[in-house]
C-alpha cells in the first residue's frame, strides 16, 4: 500500500505524534540481538507509566499519546522483539522493563498484546498495578486448534504471513473513520518484518500459559467494542467470565481498533481507569506515592489470594476507588451491612 493512500498518516494527530515522540530502541539480547522498539512520552519523574502492548507496531497508539500525555500521563508503547514462546516473551518483557528502570507499571494490551499482558501479569503480579484489556482473549486454544500451519510460521515467506494476518481484518461496509483506521493498520502491518510476523502468529497460536481458573482481580478494565470482528465474540465473553470482577467498558461501535477509530471514548475509559488506580494528573498533579503503594499491596493480595470470599469482592471496587481518588479517610464500613 502506498503511504499517500493512507489518510491517517497525514492527519494532524499523527503528524504531531511523529514530531513529538522519537522512536527508541533497546537491545536486550546477549548472544542474539533482541531489539525492542518503543515510544516513551510524558513526565518521566515519579510517574508510573501505562505500557501499551499490541501485536502491531508501537505507533498505533498515537492518538492516546497525543491527547493524554500532555495532561501529565506517561505512556510507553512497545513493538516487541520476536520470541517463539510465551514464557520467553514474558522474560524478555521483564528485562525490557528492567532496562528502562520501571519497577511498577500499568498495562494496556490489545488482541495478542492483551494476552501477553495477562501472561506477564500472572508471572510477575507484583509489577503490574492494573491492566486494561481491549479486544482480547484469555485462552489461545481456539487459535491453536484452528491454525493448520502453526509450526511453520517461522519458515513461511513474509507475504504469506501478511496474508494470514490480513485475512482476519475487518472488511465490508464500514464507516469512514473505521475504513481509515483499517487502512492505517494494514499499512502498519506492512512495515513488520518476516521474523516479527512469524513470532506474533506463533505466540498467538501456541498453547496457553494462563492459569485456567481465572482471577478475581478487580484492577482490570476491559474495553470492547460491540462490533469487533477479529476476535470472536465467544472468546471475548470468556474473558469477561475469566475476570468476574473486571470493569467492562463497552463501546457501541468502532470496530477492531477502537483506540484509533473511537479514540475519544477509549481515552475517557483510560483516564477513568487510571484515576481509580491512583493516577490522576489532571485533578491531582502530584499523586501521592503512598496512595500508589497502598494500591499495589491491595492488588497483590487480590491477585494471590484467589480464594477470597466473593461477597467481599463485590463490595470492593467502590472501596478501592474511593481510597484512591481521595487520599482521605477510607471509612466506608457501611458497605458491609
Amino acid at each position: 500500500m502506498n503511504s499517500s493512500d493512507v489518510a491517517l498518516l497525514s492527519s494532524e494527530p499523527y503528524i504531531l505524534f511523529k514530531s513529538w515522540v522519537p522512536q527508541q530502541k533497546i537491545s536486550i539480547g546477549t548472544v542474539n540481538e533482541k531489539l525492542w522498539k518503543y515510544y516513551d512520552f510524558g513526565p518521566k519523574k515519579d510517574t508510573i507509566p501505562l505500557v501499551f502492548i499490541s501485536p502491531g507496531t508501537a505507533e498505533i497508539f498515537y492518538k492516546q499519546f497525543v491527547s493524554l500525555c500532555p495532561k501529565g500521563y506517561r505512556f510507553i508503547s512497545v513493538q516487541f522483539s520476536p520470541y517463539d514462546s510465551l514464557l520467553g516473551w514474558c522474560k524478555g518483557f521483564e528485562r525490557f522493563l528492567d532496562r528502562l528502570g520501571l519497577e511498577k507499571i500499568h498495562l494496556f494490551g490489545t488482541s495478542l498484546g492483551g494476552y501477553l499482558a495477562q501472561c506477564f501479569y500472572q508471572t510477575r503480579p507484583s509489577r503490574v498495578i492494573s491492566m486494561i484489556l481491549n479486544n482480547t482473549f484469555c485462552d489461545t486454544q481456539y487459535y491453536h486448534d484452528n491454525s493448520s500451519c502453526a509450526a511453520m510460521f517461522s519458515i513461511l515467506p513474509e507475504f504469506m504471513l501478511k496474508k494470514i494476518i490480513l485475512s482476519n481484518f475487518p472488511s465490508g461496509k464500514l464507516d469512514k473513520e473505521m475504513c481509515d483506521t483499517v487502512d492505517f493498520m494494514v499499512y502498519q502491518i506492512e512495515s513488520l518484518q518476516q521474523q516479527e510476523l512469524a513470532s506474533r502468529l506463533t505466540l498467538n497460536c501456541s498453547i496457553g500459559l494462563l492459569n485456567p481458573s481465572g482471577g478475581l482481580m478487580e484492577n482490570i478494565t476491559i474495553i470492547d467494542s460491540l462490533d469487533t470482528v477479529s476476535v470472536p465474540e465467544k472468546l471475548r465473553e470468556e474473558c469477561y467470565k475469566y475476570y468476574p470482577n473486571a470493569k467492562i467498558a463497552l463501546i457501541k461501535e468502532g470496530g477492531d481498533f477502537v483506540y484509533i477509530s473511537r479514540s475519544d471514548e477509549v481515552n475517557i475509559h483510560i483516564q477513568v481507569h487510571l484515576r481509580n488506580f491512583g493516577l490522576d494528573p489532571v485533578n491531582n498533579p502530584k499523586s501521592d506515592e503512598t496512595t500508589n503503594n497502598n494500591n499495589i499491596n491491595n492488588n497483590n493480595n487480590n491477585n494471590n489470594n484467589t480464594t477470597q470470599i466473593k461477597k467481599e469482592k463485590l463490595n470492593k471496587p467502590l472501596k478501592t476507588k474511593d481510597t484512591n481518588q481521595f487520599n482521605k479517610s477510607s471509612i466506608f464500613e457501611d458497605e458491609h451491612e
Partner: peptide, 15 residues
C-alpha cells in the same frame, strides 16, 4: 447506600 458524602471526581460508571 452510604450516608457518607464523598465528592465524585470527574466521572465513573457502573454497568
Amino acid at each position: 447506600f452510604s450516608n457518607q458524602y464523598k465528592a465524585t471526581i470527574g466521572a465513573d460508571f457502573l454497568t
